[in-house]
Every structure is written in C-alpha cells, then in structure tokens.
Amino acid sequence: MKKDQLLTRRRALLGGVAALGAAGAAGLLGLGAGGDPAAPAAPAAGAPARRPLKPSTYRLQPLVGHGGPNASRTLVRREPVLRMTGVGRTMVLTFDDGPDRRYTPDILSTLRAYDVRAMFFVCGEMVVDNKDLLAEMAEEGHVVGNHTWSHPLLTELSRGRIRSEMERTSDVIEETYGERPRWFRAPYGAWNRSAFQLGAELGMEPLAWTVDTLDWTEPGTRTIVDQVENGAGPGVVVLSHDAGGDRSQSVRALRDYLPQLLDDGYHITVPRRHQV
C-alpha cells in the first residue's frame, strides 16, 4: 500500500475511533493548572525506576526536529494526565518500550481480533529496525506516543539531552507513522520541569497511567490478568509493556483480560486530546 493511501486509511480509522470515543471519553483530566509554569513533579505512581537498558548498537545520529505549527499552543502541565474523563465504562490500554518484533505483532493481532485500538509509547531506537510495525499501527488506527529515544532516566539528563531524546523520537515517528506524536510518557514515570516544558514545546501532552500491571517484573500471566481486572474502572489507563525484556506473559495476559473487559461492558478506546 502506498504511503498516501496508508495515511488516508489511517485518518479515516482514527476519525471513527474519535467518534466512538466522544460519548465516553470526551476529554482528559489534567491534574495540574493548565497554563501555569510547571513545577517539579514526583514520579507517577507505578513501577519503581529500573536501570536504563544499555544503548542500542543501531542508534542513529540526531535528526533535525521541529515542534510543528501547534506546538506553542500546548499548555505546560505540572503533573501528567492519569486517567480519562467522560461518561460510561471507558478504558485505555497502553504498551511501552517497543516496538519489538518478538511481542508487538502478537499484541497487535489480539487487538485486531477484538477490533480494539490501543496506545503504543515507542522508543526511537526501537522504531529504527521495526518501522513496518509502526506502519501497521497506523494502518489499524492505534495511537503512537513518544517514549524518548533510548529510555533514559530524564531526571538525570540536561535539558538539551531531554530535548534530543524527545525530538529525535518525534522525527522518526513522523517519518514512519505519518504524523508527529501528540502524547509522551517519561521512562520509569520520572517526570521533571524540563520534561513537561519540552513536551509542550513539541506539541505533546504527558500521559501516565492509573493501573500498573507490573508485567515488567514477570510475575506470571495470572497475576497480570488479576492486576487489570481488579483495577478496571471508568477512565482507567492501563500500563503494560511490549518490549524491554521477556514480554511473553504480557502477550498471554492480554488474550485473557481483553475479552473479559469487553464482556464486562468496558469500551476500550484511545483518548482525545483537548483542542487548545
């Protein structure tokens, strides 16, 4: 499929997703004062910081980045968004650290089987060798977010390094997915003033999570399923992983809990960002 056909198909899919989500997910709850200068924030609830992965052997040189025409209009938050707001039993499934050829295709296959859209927060260095998986996400209407280039602990980086990590990733997402990301997530849930400010400059909203499956600890498929089912509720954002280690338990768990959530009456959707 040609790139222009792919992007047309993707925009049509996302338009349908937005229409479906409008009734149950009209917007997002921002916990900080929207237009005020951002203050340092504690890490979001969830997994404690892990040691960053070793740098990839296929890392690219920095690309020329830009924030896009709407970047300056994105408000700087003090804290990340933690959950959706709206009427109805809506939930969002998110997957971090990929794409990974060992696990992401299985996750995409399960989502496709149930006609469900999800969010994938990708690392730029992982995209480089897996561009076809991002194209598949675009084709099927999933939302792709920025998870930095090499998954560093942002609170230990200079402002310039943080910008490079974010900007390079936005560039490779735009090249592969068809448009620049509108969401970002700090690795390890470690946010700071610079991350909020630079994310806003690049036109992105910060999204954390409500329920951490703790799948990165490899606790067993049943435990991951229980984490999701016990934490399910209106507006919940679920954190899982499709890379960064052995994610076979995460793949199997999704096959179990996704149909159960749907049977329980939850609408699994993707969020709509406030138009500002």
Rank of each mutant, 00 (worst) to 15 (best):
I107S: 00
G88W: 04
H142P: 03
V236Q: 08
W183A: 09
H151D: 06
D4K: 11
A42P: 07
D263K: 09
T217W: 11
G199A: 08
T221M: 06
M137A: 02
T110N: 00
L13S: 09
H267G: 11
D132H: 08
A12M: 08
A138V: 11
T8Q: 14
V236E: 09
E139M: 12
V143F: 08
H267A: 14
G244R: 08
R50C: 10
R83E: 14
R73Q: 14
A38T: 11
H267D: 15
W209T: 14
E179V: 15
S72Q: 11
L262W: 04
V76M: 08
G46D: 01
S250L: 07
E179T: 15
G235C: 00
A118L: 04
P43E: 07
M91L: 12
L82I: 15
G98T: 09
L60W: 15
G160A: 15
T74W: 10
Q249V: 05
L7V: 13
W191N: 02
K3R: 14
E156P: 05
A243M: 06
R182G: 11
K131A: 06
G16S: 13
V236M: 09
R180V: 12
D4H: 13
Q227P: 01
E175I: 02
S170H: 11
D4C: 04
E201F: 07
S158A: 07
L6N: 04
S170A: 15
V87A: 15
G68K: 10
R112E: 11
L157K: 05
A243K: 12
V236L: 00
D100Q: 05
E174N: 12
V144S: 08
P99H: 01
G124Y: 03
V225Q: 01
R78A: 15
N192H: 10
V81G: 03
G98M: 02
E79N: 13
V128I: 12
T169H: 03
H267R: 04
P181W: 09
V228Q: 05
S250M: 03
D263S: 12
G235R: 06
V236C: 01
P181E: 07
A19L: 07
T169E: 00
A49N: 05
V81R: 12
M166Q: 00
L29T: 14
D226W: 03
A208Y: 09
P62S: 04
P55E: 01
V238C: 05
R73T: 10
L254A: 00
Q249M: 02
G15P: 00
H142K: 09
M204I: 10
D106N: 12
R89W: 00
D246E: 05
A41T: 08
L63Y: 13
G86Q: 05
T217L: 14
V17Q: 13
P234L: 03
D97G: 03
S164R: 08
R101E: 12
L261R: 06
A23Y: 06
L13Y: 10
T213Y: 02
M1E: 13
P105Y: 01
G145R: 07
V211H: 00
R163C: 06
V237G: 01
G68N: 01
P99A: 02
P80F: 12
A22L: 13
G86V: 02
D212H: 02
T169N: 01
V127L: 02
S240Q: 10
G231L: 05
A71F: 06
V17C: 11
